[in-house]
């Protein structure tokens, strides 16, 4: 036992040590991409709105008149200190934008993940187990449609059906205006703040607002998940250890659930970790569609305004999120699969 937990600790340390170079590579990429655009960012964002003197002052404040190497060094310092400077257009600290809107994005992505797993795991399992039967064909079709349908289109349909025709659920924003005003901000996660303040009705209101965006984004991921689980389950159902378990007379429900399904989930964990980019991309589009006040919709706003400082800060946070999630996924894999730890 001691040896095993020791090797687990060593594995985690190795994995943690990798985080630094991974973040470094990603943020460097972000920095380079942001400089590839021609012209200087300040005039792009504010040209024509400010006097040349004011522009130059802003440029100087943002450091765009310094050599690239110096800018890069300052950028790295910003990343380490988590201080991404002031936005160019509305002159807010980027960090404030991230904090104010990050909670909404976190709420949305986590809720979407819950939807994705709640829909994708049972459907993928069913399709894989009863391969080529009518339910399998139906489930596969469902998975392809939810994956291939553009987010705004799926969102629009849900808005029309559940918001307009049935009038069951709100289709815009994170909460009603009264709730937004009444819930005291503590964690910047509105759902949690409502709960902490003991405002049960506000909590329900936020939850109702969350359903349609979470389902929209969740179904996008569920499509991927269904396919993954199905393919892997078909494979593990044919595996040697499944046949051996049947030869020992293990009940079919246990053969599927305990042996085949569990083994099918091992690669699913890894591949779903790689879908974090899809999740973040989908979150941006979902936030746009549902007017959800997350950093995704802020990113779109600042992109339209050509506010490079804000965009760079937000994308950097996305990049760090990708690295952190991939670390988490590796930890989960190590817990699930004993072979990874060696």
């Amino acid at each position: 036992m001691a040896a095993r937990s020791g090797s687990m600790r060593r594995y985690l340390l190795q994995r943690l040590a990798l985080v630094v170079p991974m973040v470094w590579v990603l943020v460097t990429l972000v920095f380079l991409l942001m400089r590839v655009a021609p012209g200087d960012p300040v005039s792009a964002a504010l040209g024509g709105r400010l006097s040349p003197a004011a522009l130059a002052a802003r440029r100087h404040a943002a450091g765009f008149d310094k050599p690239l190497v110096v800018q890069y060094g300052e950028y790295l310092r910003d990343v380490v200190t988590l201080n991404f400077g002031q936005t160019l257009t509305d002159n807010r600290p980027v960090r404030e934008v991230l904090i104010d809107n990050g909670g909404a994005t976190l709420t949305l992505t986590l809720a979407a993940l819950i939807v994705a797993f709640a829909v994708g795991l049972p459907l993928g399992r069913r399709a894989g187990r009863h391969r080529d039967t009518p339910p399998d064909v139906g489930i596969r079709l469902f998975g392809i449609i939810t994956y291939a349908a553009p987010v705004f289109f799926l969102g629009l349909i849900l808005q029309l059906v559940f918001g307009v025709f049935l009038d069951w659920l709100p289709t815009s924003d994170q909460a009603g205006p009264v709730v937004q005003a009444e819930v005291p901000t503590r964690t910047h996660i509105l759902l949690l703040d409502a709960l902490l303040a003991g405002q049960w009705n506000s909590f329900v209101d936020v939850l109702r607002h969350l359903i349609l965006p979470a389902v929209t984004l969740g179904l996008l991921l569920a499509g991927v998940l269904i396919r993954l689980v199905r393919v892997n389950l078909i494979q593990t159902l044919r595996s040697d250890y499944v046949e051996a378990a049947r030869a020992r007379g293990i009940r079919e429900s246990d053969v599927v659930g305990r042996h085949a399904f569990r083994n099918a989930l091992v690669p699913v964990v890894t591949v779903m970790g790689l879908q974090i980019a899809l999740l973040l991309g989908g979150a941006v589009l979902t936030e746009e569609t549902f007017n959800w006040p997350g950093i995704g919709s802020q990113l779109v706003n600042y992109l339209n305004e050509r506010d490079y400082t804000a965009v760079q800060g937000i994308i950097t946070v996305f990049a760090v999120a990708v690295v952190v999630v991939s670390l988490l996924i590796d930890v989960v894999s190590a817990v699930v699969d004993p072979r990874v730890r060696y």
């Binding site: 040697d240 250890y241 051996a244 305990r258 042996h259 083994n263 091992v266 699930v336 699969d337 004993p338």
Partner: peptide, 8 residues
């Protein structure tokens, strides 16, 4: 080599 469930 492949007849035992690797996760068990």
């Amino acid at each position: 080599l492949t007849r035992l469930d690797p996760l068990m």
